[in-house]
Structures are given as C-alpha cells and as structure tokens.
Write a protein that binds this DNA or RNA. Structure first.
Lengths: 213, 213
DNA sequence: TGCAAATGTGAGGATTAATCACATTTTGCA
DNA sequence: TGCAAAATGTGATTAATCCTCACATTTGCA
C-alpha cells in the first residue's frame, strides 16, 4: 500500500486533476482525510457522508480536501483501491502454492470464509462495494480486481488441470469470482444462518465447477 | 400490471406519503411522468435524471410530480416494480408446467437467455438494477423478487426431486437466482463474446446444482 | 536569506431536490 | 342542477450540499 493518492480513472465528466501530496505534512493530512471518511462511511454510509463533515473531522478545510481529491467519489474510490490492493495480495499468497485439487479446495474455502467475515465485520467494505454498481469508476475497479483475482485462480487451475482449455478456465474463474461477491453480498443481507447456508452452497457450486466432484 | 402507484417501502428517512391517483386524468398524467422518467433514464441514467426535466417532458409541473411521488427514488422504484411484476409473471408461467429434468433444463435456459437479452436491449433495466445496491428500497425489492422467483423454481424442483431436502432446495434456488443476476450484469459489462461464454458457463453451473449432471 | 512551489483556507457560486400556499378541476350528493 | 369538499395543478421559493477560487501561509532549496 503506497501513500500516494492513486489517479482515479476518468469518470463520465472528467474531474480536474488534483495534486499528489509530496510533503510529509500533506501526506499525513491526506491520511487523516481518508480516516475521517472511513469513519463517517462506517457510521452513516458513503451516500450520507458530507464533505464538510469529512473536512471537519480530519481537522482540515474543505479546500484542502479538494486539493487532493477531485470530488467526493474519489475519496470512496481511494478507500476502495486500498482494500482491493490488500485483498489481492492476500489472495495471491493463498493461491500461490496450490498444486492439487485438495489444496485448491482448502485455499478456496478459506478465502471465501475470509471474504464473508470481512463483509460481516467491516461496514465500510459493505458500503463501498454495495454502492459499486452506481459509480462507473468503482465498477471498473471491481471488474479489474475480479479479473486479477481470477488470474491467480487460473494460474492455480493450470497447475492442477494442465490439459484444460485456457479460455474455459478463464471464463470459469472470472465467473466464479464474480459470483462469490454476489453470494457474499446476498449472504450478509439475510439472517445469519441462511447466510451461512448460502455461502456453503456457493462454495460447493464453485468448487464443483473448478475442480469437479 | 396495475395503474396504481404502489406504496414504496419506507426508506431510511421516511418519505411523507403521497396521493394515489384516483381520477382518470391524474392516472394518465402519472403514466406520462413515468414514461418521461423512463426515457430520461434510458438517455442519461437515473442519476443524471433531473426532476425538473421529468416534469417538463411529461408536460406537468414539479409540484404535480411530487404529488404522486414522494421523492426522486420513488420514481425509479415505481419503474422497477413494474419490471419485476412483469418478469415474475413470465417466470412463473415458464416454470409452471415443468415436471422433469429436461423440462427444467429447457425452461431455465430460455429464461436466462431472455433475461440476458433484456439487459442487453433495455438501458432502463440496466440502469435501475445496476444502481440497485445503493438504494435500500430497491435492494429490498430485488431481494423480494429473487425470493419470489426462487419459490417458482423450488416448486418445480420439488416435482422433479420430491425427496430432496426442502431447505437445501430453497437455498440452492435462491442462490442460483441471485447469481444469475450477477452473471448477467457481468456479461453485459464485457465484450459480447466473453459475455456469451459467461452466460453459458453460468447456465451449466446452475443446472448442475439444480438437477445434477 | 529569499523566492518559487506546495499547501491551506473558507466564504460564496451553482445545482438541484423538495416544499408550500394558493389556484383550478372534478366528484359526490341534496 | 347547484354547490361544498376532495382531488389535483402550479411554480416561485427554500434548503442542502458539492465544489471553486482568490488569496494567505508554509516549506524546500540555492
């Protein structure tokens, strides 16, 4: 995770570019802004988050906020970007040494559990990825993230089933990943025990598709 | 499909109740409002849709708009509600007479295709169900819709596999349905041929889960 | 030290959702 | 038919909020 504010992909209306914090002082302030935003999102959701409130909590002026973030969505995007970077590292590590079916079963099951727990425990994650679909930049980030994660999965699958059609593996991995997100989102929006059942059912389905019975 | 404006479930902040059109005149005006909103959503997306523009296109005043819709989201919700009612009828009809595995395979495959085509062809549908997650009322509508559709599927499954555990069928059907929506949304956001592959892969996965190999 | 670049500020401009006090039309009924 | 009450229609106005901008302050550096 770097401290630099990542350049957000252009949105429908291109937001004017913003400075990247180059001094230590401003880097710390940007951290405070993100922390404040994160706290507010956890409390009320990103939609209800007010720029003035973020600035106040971070102990900076509105102007400073806009110095580093072109608009409100960019703040949410920056938080989302951190989560994806972190989780990608985690996923890559978990799938890195998988070499057989049982290894994949094990690793996949654990990853799904982690993801599920994360969504249950982290209101910010829930909020960000729930609103995903409405925001073009976030949707693209999620898609890119899914593709990257699917790649890790494909790499593992190729080791397990070296003679399988690469395109099919690619398709299956991408689909399975995206469905996992859908399954977890669904699971957290219903009663806990039904959610658990849904996640378990998803795991079975996904693994059957990936490594067979 | 009834002409009445359905009462929208309470949102976070409870919107003040609005009149239901009881006279022929107002019913027609409400239709014009919805048509105008639909056209604007198709053109620019529901986020960019402006209340003033809806009113102008419908040939009514802002005040009239708010006479029948408590707020902006209620308009989108009303459109969404119509789509779900329509599609539920379609789904119920398609699954009504399914009595064996091959019948289900056939019906399910057709329903998925119809849904996929609908999303490809209907920008309003795309927009509404993309923004779904951000809006509590829409999320609830989608969930209720999924559950209702899952019920039709469960009914068919019980005829095919009468000795299966009902809870498991319920879980599988609900999950499969929700995943179908995720799969289609994913499919329409990538290149057409990749989308087709994804939908095909989803069908395979879903049917394997529902009726086995 | 002094200057240019980086950073900080918050009042105010610009949008836009939503309200409300009042006008007009329709309906139900004696 | 005539008329009171309910339903419907109107748009200037209010309120909330994002974001800009002109100017002040701080930092890095030769």
């Amino acid at each position: 995770m770097d401290d630099k504010v990542a350049a957000r992909p252009d949105q429908a209306a291109i937001a004017s570019p913003r400075r990247s914090p180059s001094q230590q002082r401003s880097r710390e302030r940007v951290e405070r802004m993100l922390a404040a935003a994160s706290a507010l999102i956890a409390e009320q959701g990103s939609d209800a988050m007010r720029m003035g409130e973020v600035a106040e909590r971070a102990g900076v002026s509105i102007g400073s906020l806009y110095q580093f973030f072109p608009d409100k969505r960019a703040i949410v995007w920056a938080l989302a970007e951190r989560y994806t970077a972190e989780s990608q590292a985690c996923i890559a590590a978990a799938l890195k040494d998988v070499a057989d079916k049982d290894g994949l079963r094990q690793a996949f099951s654990e990853l799904v559990d982690i993801y599920y727990q994360l969504f249950l425990a982290e209101p910010v994650m829930r909020d960000i990825w729930s609103g995903t679909q409405a925001d073009k930049a976030l949707r693209e980030l999620e898609l890119a993230d899914s593709r990257a994660n699917a790649e890790f999965l494909v790499a593992a699958l190729k080791r397990i089933r070296p003679d399988a059609d690469p395109i099919e593996l690619e398709t299956a991995a991408f689909l399975v990943w995206q469905m996992g997100e859908a399954a977890v989102r669904l699971a957290i929006s219903v009663e806990r025990d039904e959610g658990d059942r849904l996640v378990a059912a998803y795991k079975r389905m996904a693994l059957r598709e990936l490594v067979g019975e």
